[in-house]
Amino acid sequence: MAKLAKSPWLLHYDGSSCNGCDIEVLACTTPVYDIERFGIYNTGDPFQADILLITGGINSQSESVVKQIYSQMPEPKVVVAVGICACTGGVFKECYNIKGGVDTVIPVDVYVPGCAARPQAIIDGVVQALEILQKKRDDFEQKKKAGA
């Protein structure tokens, strides 16, 4: 489990979600689905997070907040869009206030569909994101060595 050896911390933010996917994300951190046994901890601080879990589509108010949170996270980082609303806008796609999924404002690495996305699927998405994170970390180290 080398890819999980560095114990990444995750940050959760609700874009404009109905809350269904949010409580499933929180259910991943509590007993039964317990993502903490992999060393992954739910922090509230963007400056200390490696993985960003976003639920819900993007509307005009949350656009700037999501961009700010993304810019506050240090490199390397990965973004997981949880739930169909975060992937494409979901069932609210035709609403006047929804612009679309999370990829309209920030780059997304893993999409986890579902309404509400199940904890098993979310953990699977996070594990796939960790492989991408490991690759980004290796690239980051190489660039640092080449630059130094």
């Binding site: 404009s16 979600s17 589509g57 949350s62 907040v65 609403c95 929804i98």
Partner: peptide
């Protein structure tokens, strides 16, 4: 922040 405007649907 969570206003989707779904009543118009």
């Amino acid at each position: 922040f969570v206003h989707r405007g779904l009543e118009k649907l």
